[in-house]
Amino acid sequence: MDSDALYCSVDLVCGSGVTLSAEHRAALQSSLIILKRNMNFRRVLFWGKICGIKNDYFIAQGVGEDQIRDRKSIYSINCIDWHLLPPATKALIDEVAMAAKGRFMGDPSHKYEHETQEQEEGDCERCSVKVNEEQRLAVTVFTIDNEVAVVPRGAYIKNLQGIAQPNRSFEGLNPSEAAELSNYLHFSESRKPRKKNIMEMANLNPSIDFLDPLSEDIPKGSWIVHFEHGNRVCTIKSLVWQGLTFFNLPMTPWHGYLYMGDGLKNVDLSFML
């Protein structure tokens, strides 16, 4: 969610219980403005919090020109000192998937080690994969963004240069539209261009529908649409990454998402539905 509207946005997503204390809110408001200036970002988003055992990580994102590709993630433990996360490359994602297990510790230098035995022509080679928690954090933030970042349909447009930009004329979804999962899109680069038939194509607008809708996600039922706060705020929760909450006030362009959780993917979902 946009850090400028942090003070009122946090109250809208607290239906799942996790909020920010007044001290952290105040600290974030001060430090994110400084961060925006120093790092030369167009916009700073407060991304959320990943709870560790010893400490919690607060994560923000700086956005450049392209709202999807031009993102840098930064983390902090005390909400004041921010550190840039390393980019999540394919190799790093594989390493983290192999080595990192269990809960986050809350120490960026904590080492995860995984030993694999590879047999090559009778020789038993021991390879050990080492990652630290900072790298794991970077991969987790990237994966969550990639898999479950949400925007309402029409809030972003792709211009002629292929750059995703906020849509200035977006006026929000109306309440009946807001209850439909097909009106929300994944805010990450389209991965699976499903072949659509001509009837579906007729309703699509290429400058708006350049993202994948949530309604096509597998398994069905991995998203929950609720109206909270006296049915006035539409919130969407992901069950794959429990802790991700998207909020949207119908009839206003105000929307955002926040992750507050332990940074673990829910792999048991198929049993839980």
């Binding site: 809208l12 607290c14 239906g15 219980g17 996790v18 909020t19 204390s21 007044a22 001290e23 706060h229």
Partner: peptide
């Protein structure tokens, strides 16, 4: 609880 970073929001709590 607000200081402990858990809560449902002021209005909701009041309800």
């Amino acid at each position: 609880f607000d200081q402990a970073e858990v809560g449902l929001g002021r209005e909701e709590t009041q309800r």
